[in-house]
Design a binder for these strands. Structure first.
Lengths: 210, 210
DNA sequence: TGCAAAACTTAACGTCGTTAAGTATTATTC
DNA sequence: GAATAATACTTAACGACGTTAAGTTTTGCA
């Protein structure tokens, strides 16, 4: 039964080619200027061939998005082990923001676009695993900091702390992505803004190690 | 010469009607589901009639956006005079965020969409006037707080402070707008998140009044 | 009343996402 | 090994989009 396996393999390969072509075009020409037709054309297939591999454009986008989440997660874990939990949060935040500005098109797709996705049970499991999901990773770091009493008494809600941190870094990235070319705004250099917001937020929430 | 004045008036009225119809549709059906054709149809004109009043769809969007900025500014000024400069910043921030979540489509257009606008000289003047522009209003409040030595010594750059505040509130609004319907996220109630991020950021940057 | 300009419409172009029908190619069955 | 069934892919088409060009009606003025 090696035949059907080869067929399977070929299908996977073509699927891969579609996704790679799509991602390439997204990055090169922007997501809005990338049509199904252009994606197919890039690998010399007819536009409708895509629909044997992806239900529609949104599904294709979602699959690419899924891979990007994995990439972000890797960027976040690349900070490695850091003893001080607050320092660790700081580094994760910086990794997040650097990823965002380095991959603006992906970031826009991941966090600035509404997707009507109903996550599969499998997704849900992955998402609560710090080894897979970026948010879970942050949660883990925050939980550690909480255990070491590194947050001021006013900040005791795990979700709220995480979402506050997330809002801060997301705001910084989103503003950079959307506004960096705007003439009328004198934005400070991004690294400076990124570091400042993390400093400020952590300074606002944390207390020194006992 | 009353005739040409009446004509002028009529042009303005029709222009208004196009803009009102456009905004109505944006709010009702979302910005992406609103086409030039539908806008024209809504007030019983042919699709191409619009192009006598607006160069293209983007121009129409920009004009609507301009009005929304005025509305946001009004929301921000409605907090009134508050003696304590940091309290004032807090209130402006809350007004900003409440505006954002109350008018998500507009907010998306205003702050989450890239516009390649070259501001006119007139625009530039308006934008530096706290009586017109929201960012200038924030800047003014921050400047006042600086004058009263309400920021920690580490935070002495006006632009950086403003942009840090902005990133925080923008992040909160943007996450709410984009993610509020996402199943897999347990977002805390918005008001809570909004208040927390302002508390945290101001707590991180400010020191008590001398 | 005739004419020029302005306001508006119709028709069209090239784009898009997507579906349905058709055609090759491949695997399976006799 | 030829006939049949399934798979993979293409062609053609639909209805929608933003926008332009050409045509038509309406209007103001001589």
């Amino acid at each position: 039964m090696g035949i059907s396996e080869r067929r399977e393999r070929e299908k996977d390969e073509l699927r891969r080619k579609f996704m790679d072509a799509a991602r390439r075009l997204f990055l090169d020409r922007g997501i809005d200027n990338t049509s199904m037709r252009k994606i197919a054309d890039a690998i010399e297939y007819s536009p409708t061939a895509i629909y044997q591999y992806f239900a529609d454009k949104d599904s294709l986008l979602r699959e690419i998005c899924r891979e990007d989440f994995a990439a972000l997660h890797e960027a976040e874990t690349s900070v490695g082990e850091i003893a001080d939990p607050c320092q660790r949060i700081w580094q994760i935040g910086m990794a997040y923001m650097r990823f965002g500005v380095a991959h603006p098109e992906q970031y826009r797709l991941m966090f600035m676009t509404k997707h009507a996705v109903d996550p599969t049970p499998e997704d849900i499991q992955k998402m609560s695993d710090p080894a897979c999901d970026g948010y879970a990773l942050l949660e883990q770091a925050v939980r550690q900091a909480m255990e070491h009493q590194r947050f001021k008494p006013a900040y005791a809600d795990l979700d709220l702390i995480c979402q506050t941190l997330w809002a801060a870094v997301h705001g910084a990235v989103a503003i950079e992505i959307t506004m960096k070319d705007d003439k009328w705004l004198h934005l400070a250099p991004f690294e400076e803004r990124a570091k400042t917001i993390l400093d400020v937020v952590l300074d606002g929430m944390c207390c020194p190690p006992k």
